[in-house]
């Protein structure tokens, strides 16, 4: 059946946007084991699920939007691995059975390192301009949410410490070379 080009174009556009949403699924699938780990190990299932849902929403939006946002989201997933895993590891190996003061420290240290790595990567690989802003925004949001899944083990102080650590790690690395040049 012959249809006008405008109708066909609108249909193709809808198919494209739907395809973009579906293309977010592999990235979202990476978040599922992270959320599962947090729910099982961190003993705060509601907080873990909340962080997990927020992470999935940000990942879907960034992957659907594409370009710097999608690249930033993938980088954020990697940068958030430290604050996700380190607090869990310290709690289970160093603080068995008691109150663990190491967990918030682990959150801050891992977030500092993750943030610095993210900043270095962005500084060297992402060209300046409007794309850089979108990249950093998505990367930091995803890294913070992934980190929250691990730092929820240390409560609100752990999450706040992690976010501060992430900012302190990223910002100087991004600004210092820019000032030097």
């Amino acid at each position: 059946m012959a249809v006008s080009e405008a109708v066909l174009s609108a249909r193709a556009r809808r198919a494209y946007e739907r395809g973009r949403l579906l293309s977010a699924l592999p990235t979202v699938a990476l978040a599922v084991p992270m959320v599962g780990l947090s729910v099982v190990l961190c003993d705060r299932p509601t907080a873990s699920m909340g962080c997990g849902l927020a992470l999935v929403a940000v990942l879907v939006a960034a992957s659907w939007r594409g370009r710097p946002y999608a690249r930033g989201a993938r980088a954020g997933l990697v940068a958030g691995l430290g604050p996700l895993l380190l607090p869990m590891a310290t709690c289970f190996h160093l603080c068995m059975g008691g109150v663990c003061l190491l967990a918030p420290t682990a959150c801050v240290v891992a977030a500092l390192l993750g943030g610095a790595a993210l900043g270095l990567y962005a500084r060297h690989r992402i060209p300046g301009g409007p794309d850089a802003g979108g990249y950093l925004m998505a990367a930091i949001a995803v890294a913070a949410l992934v980190g929250s899944l691990g730092c929820v083990i240390a409560g609100v102080s752990g999450i706040v410490g992690m976010v501060v650590g992430l900012a302190l790690g990223t910002v100087p690395v991004l600004w210092w070379p820019a000032r030097a040049s």
């Binding site: 059946m1 012959a2 066909l8 249909r11 556009r13 198919a15 494209y16 739907r18 395809g19």
Partner: peptide
């Protein structure tokens, strides 16, 4: 007639898979 339909379906599928 069939060619027009097949071309439309193919075009929509190309755009649906363009993201990958």
């Amino acid at each position: 007639g069939d060619a027009e339909d097949a071309a439309q379906e193919a075009l929509v599928k190309v755009f649906a898979r363009a993201a990958v």
